[in-house]
Nucleic acid binder design. Structure first.
Lengths: 332, 332
DNA sequence: GCATATCATGGTACCCATAACATATATGCT
DNA sequence: AGCATATATGTTATGGGTACCATGATATGC
């Protein structure tokens, strides 16, 4: 409500003097400072950021566009991003696309209209539209977790190919000969990369990689459920599953329970992404753990260093290593 | 990058004409419109919201300040809020306080500096500071889920007292005579209200409400774990637990498993807040379901109707009803 | 005693989009 | 023809904070 001019009038000074008091910049005598502080107190003055933001083209705002805010994996990423942002006095806006490209493009537009300083993007798909728009508008952007082929841009992700490989190799080493993969959409790089790692491991052991054992779908529980029901029809049926994320793994479990299959006796499962401790009574799934918090934190640090104008040349790719944690769902 | 003036120059018109084309307002001839649209296209012009926001004191932004973004209950609330906001062309900023009053006050300040149009607040505690600041600055605010005593303000919440009552009565009806409550901090109204409902049910059956059977703590897994370990020392030990939220319930389960107690045979549990389907293999906990999505959605609608200047008089309290869903953790 | 540095305060312009008002032409109707 | 209305475009002022520059007062140095 109250503006810097109201405060200035009340304290009998010029607006710029109030500004100096508020920002502790330049010279102000103690006598004046006290008068100004009193006026601020009396009027309940809170500076309006929009003025300076408009003038100096800096909003101190970053945005994280992610695909599913109900998935603990992403809220953990968001935590990391949030922490890194607030350490550098940036505020973070969270945008949830529900894996929809349309929503993603809407949010991108909105964030540009708001003059967001920088953007962390988890692309809903491999199409480069949104990224190209951001680059054209010269808004520093870091791509998180997923690749967008054909664009030169900063990236922070975990190595999904290696993750897929580790998961699959573990199952093969547990003597499984028919391993299937339940994963996300083919046009999402992490789904694709996990499939590549899956095939690499199978080929390494000369087991081949039958296409019907790779079930493309969505990163949802329903998708995992449906894909598992399909796989159970096959002959020979798979004896082990690699689930492309935590939700898919849950869906697979539900389908297996319904059909009377026990895990790990009748079917082993490795899942991507651990469930948070706060939500698990006792950890059951063997998982490929991706460093979610780290990913958010490092991506944000990278983005902020770009905004500070550091290391201009080229673009940076940070690839974090996933880790296999063996638990009961693979019979260990 | 490009401003409305750049577009105007390129199209050979005045800035206001570009504005009219962009906003589809006022009269523009087809010939001019086409020239302007072409210039917009060529320059990749995206309007800068900050100008109008500054001028008209409207940012089309709402904020949801919540206490724990990793809890699916709150992300569901956020979903509801997000949906209601975008239906009315508002954008929603998510702020996570981690139950810390300091963080809450920091965010409140920040949102005021950003001229946020309205605020949805889940208060970290019962102290009225933040709410009073918001009221003083005349920013329309709706309090979500928790009460703040002593302030007149719009509220949307579910009836925690009734929830506590339903949970406890169910346990008593299952012949439990020693029922304990694990809940959050005493200065959070939902924790307090759940305890009140808990006592009401016990008193109704003349079972009394021993204070040591009410374990105040935090809404976290660790807190539930610790409190359960304490309760297991008591003689007579409780045979049934009411967990103040989903995280506490998980912590209790962990402690019980470790100590070799089976649920529901040795200990029955009713929890507040269901776990999302996508995260549960098969629902196990008997729960008091609170309408999370509804709460976010209705609170946001209420806030938006305030912003539109509707029904000025007094303040509105919307109290939603919780529902008991009986499952295996109480032996049903 | 005067030059120079330090301290203290203020005026003006600027960022961008658009409401409000002004102007000008074209069309319709009696 | 003459007036009212519709169509089309433009000018100016506005909002809040602060960088930049200007000015004046006081202190310090030699």
């Amino acid at each position: 409500m109250a503006t810097i001019r109201d405060v200035a009038k009340r304290a009998g000074v010029a607006p710029i003097t109030v500004s100096r008091v508020v920002n502790n910049s330049g010279y102000v005598s103690d006598k004046t400072r006290i008068r100004v502080e009193q006026a601020i107190e009396e009027l309940g003055y809170i500076p309006n950021m929009l003025g300076p933001s408009l003038r100096f083209k800096q909003t101190n705002t970053l945005a994280l566009i992610l695909t599913d805010i109900t998935n603990p994996f992403w809220t953990t990423v968001a935590r990391g991003a949030e922490d890194a942002a607030s350490e550098s006095q940036y505020n973070l806006i969270l945008c949830n696309t529900d894996e929809s490209e349309e929503k993603q493009n809407q949010y991108t537009q909105m964030l540009l209209r708001r003059q967001t300083d920088g953007i962390l993007l988890v692309p809903a798909s491999s199409t480069p539209q949104a990224v190209e728009l951001l680059q054209r508008q010269k808004v520093p952007t870091v791509i998180l977790d997923r690749r967008v082929p054909g664009v030169e841009i900063d990236e922070v992700r975990s190595d999904s190919e290696v993750g897929g490989y580790l998961a699959t190799r573990h199952l093969v080493e547990m003597e499984h000969r028919h391993v299937a993969l339940l994963t996300g959409p083919e046009n999402v790089s992490t789904a694709k990369d996990r499939a590549d790692g899956f095939c690499r491991a199978l080929n390494e052991f000369h087991l081949g990689c039958p296409p019907e054992f790779i079930q493309w779908g969505k990163f949802t529980q329903e998708s995992g459920y449906e894909a598992t029901k399909r796989l159970l029809q096959f002959d020979p049926r798979p004896t082990a599953l690699v689930a492309g994320n935590n939700f898919i793994a849950i869906g697979a479990m539900t389908a297996l329970n319904e059909a009377g299959y026990r895990v790990p006796e009748d079917m082993a499962i490795v899942a991507f992404d651990d469930l948070p401790v706060a939500l698990t009574i006792e950890p059951f799934f063997t998982v490929v753990v991706q460093p979610a918090y780290e990913m958010g934190y490092q991506a944000t640090q990278l983005l902020i260093s770009r905004l500070a104008g550091e290391h201009e040349e080229g673009c940076t790719k940070i690839i974090l290593s996933p880790e296999l944690v063996i638990r009961r769902s693979t019979g260990a």
